[in-house]
Amino acid sequence: MGLSILLMILDQRGAGLQRVREILSVPLSAFEYAVSWPIHTFDQFGNALNSHAGLAKENRQLKAEQLLMKAQVQRLLAIEFENNQLKALMHSSAQIHGKVLIAQLLAIDSDPFVNQVILDKGSHDGVFIGQPVLDADGVMGKIIQVSPITSRVLLINDTHSGVPVQNTRNGVRAIAVGDSYSRKLHLVNVPQTVDINVDDVFVTSGLGEHYPAGYPVGKVISIKRDTGLQFAAIDLQASARSDRSRQVLLVWPNQNVVSTPIKAGAS
């Protein structure tokens, strides 16, 4: 009992228990796979049994979507090219492209207290602690623990997560902190008078050097300006579908900036 209290205190202080957790999670990660495997298999069976009509329809839809995407990508390529040129002109060394890797979520439920998910990629694939995780719609979270074959992601709507964000409309910066219960994000310490409206989109600002800049984080859904309080209460709906997406992107952002974690990932 005393030992568990000691463990809890140490873990809360963040004192070197990371290593213990990692060692313990090595045998347990095999177990995570074991739980997740039948669920994935059932899903695959379900897909195999999908009717022809359904598949044909989906195919048509996807083709239409792909066409749209291609058109958009072409435009983006042009813009990116132009952007690179301008950056080169300004002698900026920032890289636009980072290495990416697609990972699958393991079908594991966590404690309702914690908003974390487990991925099927680990230190074998070069995943490192602090690495940003994205899905198709936006930022999802970052890696907080790696074992050889799995890794654990702290979602942005967890209470312990904070993301530096920036308003796309006017560049106002803030920090978005999660709320595990409502699954929303709050902007903290924002003065009453700041220019933020409902439906404003916030993207990562790149400050803090954890998340790459410019990825969507969330949309403002409510603002309460209570004159009795010092700060405005602003709620964001996260753009990433952390409850739905099965596949996520692991990003190796600007490799010059985050130098120490890369070393850990490479070993």
């Binding site: 030992l3 568990s4 209290i5 000691l6 463990l7 809890m8 140490l10 873990d11 809360q12 228990l17 213990v20 957790r21 313990l24 999670s25 347990l28 177990f31 995570e32 594991i108 966590s110 404690d111 207290f113 914690v114 974390q116 623990q145 654990r152």
Partner: peptide
């Protein structure tokens, strides 16, 4: 605790 990601020892 390890599997759930909760505080170690909780």
């Amino acid at each position: 605790d390890v599997l759930n990601g909760t505080l170690l020892g909780e």
